[in-house]
Amino acid sequence: NISVGKESKLTIREGDYIKISVQDHGEGISEKQIQKIFDPYFTTKKTGSGLGLSSTYSIIKNHNGHIDVESEVGKGTTFTVYLPASRENLPDRQLKTSETIKGSGKILFMDDEKSIRETVFKMLTYMGYDVESAKDGVEAIKLYEKSRDNGKPFDVVIMDLTIRGGMGGSETIQKLIEIDPDVKAIVSSGYSTDEIMSNHDKFGFCGVISKPYDIQKLSELLSKIMNGKGTE
């Protein structure tokens, strides 16, 4: 634990914090790159999305924390996270245990990252749903139309708000509403501060879920929507 006072150079409120540092001894990051590493879509990897560190930054900021990075080329990098500490005692109560809610139906999942599509496919399949995946809005619309034409429409569409280099959730939902005014769609993002995430119903979505995905929360949300219990 550390205390942050007025003399601190950290851009966070005064108070007590938990300090967590993670260090490696890799190639290091150049001064030019280090100024951009928290920017959305910035990446030095051929297969990277550039959303990992920007999502991390957003999550920590939303918890009134701070993340800092120091690096030296050829020697390694250190990331330091500061999160507000609490002096309150934990309540003496039993934790509620809950199980994943199983269901049935057909779901279309849209995300530009293959690893996320594969992970969520397994989660949804485990819950009991039939799943198809799309990498962007164009592909999602084609799958949605094809499914309707075949008489086997999707019950729910889950789509990422931001698709790198492609049609994201905000544009896709408008296209889907033109095709099917009764479409049931859930918007997802790692950026909880986006207006669509806080007012999803005004943009045509019937539910919202933040990344990283929690299988319990996702199963509860799908159960409510499948049973017509309104927006989440």
Results as ranks from 00 to 15, higher is better:
Asn1Glu: 14
Lys6Pro: 02
Glu7Gly: 10
Gly15Thr: 01
Gly15Tyr: 08
Ile20Tyr: 11
Asp24Phe: 08
Gly28Phe: 10
Ile29Gly: 04
Glu31Gln: 14
Gln35Cys: 10
Lys36His: 10
Phe38Thr: 00
Pro40Gly: 05
Phe42Leu: 08
Thr43Gln: 09
Thr44Asn: 10
Gly48Gln: 04
Gly50Leu: 10
Leu51Ile: 14
Ser58Phe: 10
His63Gly: 02
Asn64Pro: 01
Gly65Val: 06
Asp68Arg: 11
Gly76Leu: 02
Thr78Val: 14
Phe79Glu: 02
Thr80Gln: 09
Val81Tyr: 10
Tyr82Met: 08
Tyr82Cys: 09
Pro84Ala: 10
Pro84Leu: 05
Ser86Tyr: 02
Arg87Thr: 13
Leu90His: 10
Leu90Cys: 05
Asp92Ala: 12
Lys96Phe: 05
Thr97Met: 14
Ser98Gln: 15
Glu99Tyr: 11
Ile101Ser: 07
Lys102Ser: 14
Gly103Phe: 02
Ile107Lys: 06
Met110His: 02
Met110Trp: 04
Asp111Leu: 08
Asp112Leu: 12
Val120Met: 08
Leu124Gln: 04
Leu124His: 03
Gly128Arg: 11
Val131Ile: 12
Ser133Thr: 15
Ser133Cys: 13
Ser133His: 08
Val138Gln: 14
Ala140Val: 00
Tyr144Lys: 10
Asn150Val: 00
Asn150Ala: 15
Lys152Ile: 09
Val157Tyr: 06
Ile158Val: 15
Ile158Arg: 07
Ile163Lys: 15
Arg164Ser: 07
Gly165Arg: 06
Gly165Gln: 06
Gly169Gln: 09
Thr172Gln: 03
Leu176Thr: 02
Leu176Val: 01
Glu178Ala: 13
Asp180Cys: 01
Asp182Arg: 15
Val183Arg: 07
Lys184Val: 14
Ala185Tyr: 07
Ile186Gln: 00
Ile186Trp: 02
Val187Pro: 06
Met197Cys: 04
Lys202Glu: 07
Phe203Trp: 12
Phe205Gln: 13
Cys206Thr: 11
Tyr213Glu: 04
Asp214Met: 13
Ile215Leu: 09
Leu222Ile: 05
Lys224Ala: 13
Met226Lys: 14
Met226Gly: 06
Asn227Leu: 14
Lys229Ile: 01
Thr231Glu: 11
